[in-house]
Simulated scan of single mutants.
Amino acid sequence: MMKLSTMKKVMDTVDSEWRSPLGELILEKWGYDEGTVFILRASANFIFVFKKDGKQYYLRFNDSCERDLSTIEAELNIVQYLGSKCLHVAQPIKSLNGEYIETVKTEIGTFYAVVFEAIKGKHYDFEEITSDQAYLWGKSLGALHENLKQLPEEYKINRPSWRENLLKVKEILPSNETVAKKELERIVKWAEGLNISKENFGIIHYDFELDNLVFAESTIGMLDFDDSSLNWYVADIVYALRDAGDFNIKHSIITNFIQGYESETLLDMQILKETLSLRRCTN
């Protein structure tokens, strides 16, 4: 997660109309239509929406002290690989210098910036999803995983693993949180005992929730691969459906999601059941 100090120094440049001279300064590397640059959100990344020649795009940037350049390069390589497989994944746009990633030095710090194309469609909340849309949601994740199972090994370099993500959790836990640390150790030990194969483990999206998906008739556009990491594919399913609360396999949305998923790729049901069992024990 982004440091609050980093968020503050950037948000201090944003005015009451959600404009920021910092965003415009960074976008000089790509060009933009005057008066169209607005901040959209600040969470793990700073996201701005803008137009160039009347067409909409998204700017994403991070403080260089919080994001490693090699991880961004690895993410974009994966995104472009998936685009080459005809998946509907938002693609990066080259700057005026012909670069996908620009390093921009400013008075308040150095930032790594990327611009992505906008995908037409609509975002939905979990409560709005129909059974048909749930099927399409699962089908899209299944198609994504099926293509990621073919991902060459070199594309996995410089992407974090499940173990690294858990180690980050351990690092931020206060020393007096003994119960939480024991629980974390239990989870690590459990994960170490899981089976690993090409069919059940690889690069996952890690945030395939509805706010990163754009629905357009019979297709779903996929956004935001910056958290993609090495993990069991079932983790993407559980993370995607976390808004369902208690993961009840008989829930109509979950049932249709899994049916859609299995129409595109194999699901390791045993690991899914073990994951859900651990989730219930943890909760």
Rank of each mutant, 00 (worst) to 15 (best):
G138M: 15
P92H: 12
V114F: 08
G83Y: 10
S95M: 10
E177N: 09
E128L: 01
L184K: 03
N77F: 02
L144D: 06
E127K: 03
N77W: 07
Y135I: 12
N147Q: 14
A118C: 08
E73R: 06
A74T: 02
V179L: 14
K189V: 05
S161L: 15
V169N: 10
N97C: 07
A180G: 00
K120P: 00
K182S: 05
L194E: 03
D125G: 08
V79Q: 04
Y112H: 07
C86H: 09
K181C: 04
W162T: 04
S84G: 04
E107G: 09
S70H: 09
D125E: 02
N147S: 14
N195V: 03
Y124Q: 06
P160V: 12
L141S: 05
W162G: 10
E73C: 09
A134S: 14
S140L: 11
L184V: 00
G83L: 14
I157K: 15
V188M: 13
E66R: 07
T110K: 09
K156N: 09
Y81E: 04
K85L: 14
S95A: 11
L69G: 02
V115D: 01
I172Q: 05
E153S: 14
K139T: 06
G121K: 08
H123V: 10
E107H: 05
E185Y: 03
G142A: 01
E183I: 11
I78D: 05
D125K: 00
V114A: 08
S70Q: 11
G138E: 11
K94P: 00
E154G: 07
V169I: 14
K181G: 01
K120T: 03
Y124A: 09
L144H: 07
I119W: 12
E146S: 12
A191G: 04
S175R: 12
Y155P: 05
L144Q: 06
L173K: 03
Q91N: 04
L136M: 15
I72P: 00
G98P: 02
K181D: 00
N147C: 13
A113H: 01
E66I: 03
K170D: 03
E153L: 15
L151W: 14
H88V: 11
R163W: 10
E128I: 01
E117P: 00
T110W: 11
R67D: 01
E146W: 13
D125C: 06
K168S: 06
H145T: 09
K105S: 08
I129C: 08
E183V: 07
I108F: 08
Y124E: 04
I172P: 00
E102V: 02
L166Q: 05
Y124R: 03
L184Q: 02
L76G: 04
C65L: 13
A180S: 10
E75I: 02
L184H: 00
T130C: 15
R163F: 13
G98W: 14
R159K: 07
E183R: 11
V79K: 04
K122H: 10
L151Q: 09
Q80L: 14
L96Q: 00
